[in-house]
Simulated scan of single mutants.
Amino acid sequence: MSVVSVAEQMFYFLIPMLLVGSVFGQDSGEIFQNDCEEVGTESALNLNFDDPNKLQTSSLSDCNLNECHNVTDTDVIIDRKCPGDEKCSYRFFRCCQSFQSAQHTCRCIRGNLTSIHNQCTNHHIKQFVNQQCVNVGLVWIGVWKPNQCNGYQNVDGSCLNYTNWACGHPQRHGRKCTALNVKNGRWYTLNCCRRLPFVCAV
C-alpha cells in the first residue's frame, strides 16, 4: 500500500469524525467563547462560598471593576417581576469570570447575576447578549446549586419559578452553577469555577 493511499484513507476517516464532534459540541451547548477577556479575580478576592449566604454578604471593599473593560449597559425594561422592584436594567460583562466572581462583580454595582422568571425574559436576555457579542455562546445567570444538600436556587433570593433546562440537565450531584446558552436559550449546569461572560440585573 502506497504512502499516498494511506494518507487518503486517514483524511477520509478524520473528516467525518471532526464534523460529528462539531455538531455534538453545538447540541450540548459547549460553544466556544471566542470573544472572551480572561479576568482572574479569585486569588485577589480569596472567595470561599461553602455557605450560600456568603454570595450576598461577602465584603465589597475589594471591588475593582476596572478589570472588566467590556461592559454593555441596557435600560430596556424586559421584566416587571424583578425582585424588589418593578423594573430591571441589565449589564452584560464580556470578561470571563467564575460564577462566584461574577456574582461578586454584580454586587459591586448593586445588583446580582440575573434571575429569570419567565420565557419572555429568557428570550430577551438571549437576544440582548447576541446583539452585543456574536462570539459568545454561554453566559452565567443567577441560578446555582451551592452544595449536595441544597436544590437549585436564585442567588438574589427570589423564587425559582421558571427554568429552561437543556436535555440531560440539571445535574443533581455536588455544587453546580447555571449558564444560559444564548444560541438556543437553554440552561446548562457547569462547574462553578469555569470562566464565562455574565449578565447582571441592576
Rank of each mutant, 00 (worst) to 15 (best):
L196R: 04
K81R: 14
P52H: 09
M17I: 09
F198A: 02
K145E: 01
N181C: 04
E37C: 09
C192P: 01
A44L: 14
R175I: 05
N154I: 02
N118H: 15
T57Y: 05
G40S: 11
I15K: 10
Q56V: 11
C36P: 01
T74M: 02
Y152M: 01
I116G: 05
L14I: 07
Q171T: 06
Y152E: 04
K87D: 02
R94A: 12
S43V: 09
D73E: 13
E37Q: 10
E38C: 05
L196G: 04
S101Q: 07
L19G: 09
L45F: 11
A201R: 11
A102I: 00
H69L: 15
N46V: 14
F32N: 09
R194W: 00
Y152C: 01
C133F: 13
L19K: 04
T74H: 00
N164P: 04
S89Q: 10
H117S: 08
K145G: 04
E42Q: 08
Q103D: 13
C177S: 04
Q9D: 14
T57N: 07
E38D: 10
S158P: 07
V143N: 01
R195S: 06
N184Y: 03
G137P: 07
Q9S: 14
F92W: 02
W165T: 02
R186C: 03
L138I: 05
V76T: 14
E8R: 13
N135W: 12
A201N: 09
E37R: 05
E38I: 12
L65P: 07
E86Q: 03
C68F: 10
K176D: 01
I31V: 06
R110D: 15
N191G: 03
N150L: 12
Q56P: 05
I141D: 08
N150E: 15
C106F: 02
N34L: 14
C68T: 12
R195C: 03
F32K: 12
R172K: 06
V4T: 14
T105V: 12
I141F: 01
Y188N: 08
F13D: 11
T163H: 00
Q9T: 04
H117M: 03
L65V: 09
L65N: 11
A44S: 12
V71D: 01
P16Q: 04
S59N: 15
Q100T: 07
S43F: 09
S22I: 15
F49T: 05
S28F: 15
C96N: 08
C177P: 02
F128G: 08
D50G: 07
H69T: 15
I78L: 10
Q171G: 09
S89H: 06
N70A: 10
C95H: 13
E38Y: 09
T41P: 07
A7W: 13
C159D: 15
H69F: 12
C177I: 01
N147Y: 03
Q119A: 12
D62R: 13
T74G: 00
A166R: 00
N164I: 06
A166I: 00
R107N: 01
F92Y: 15
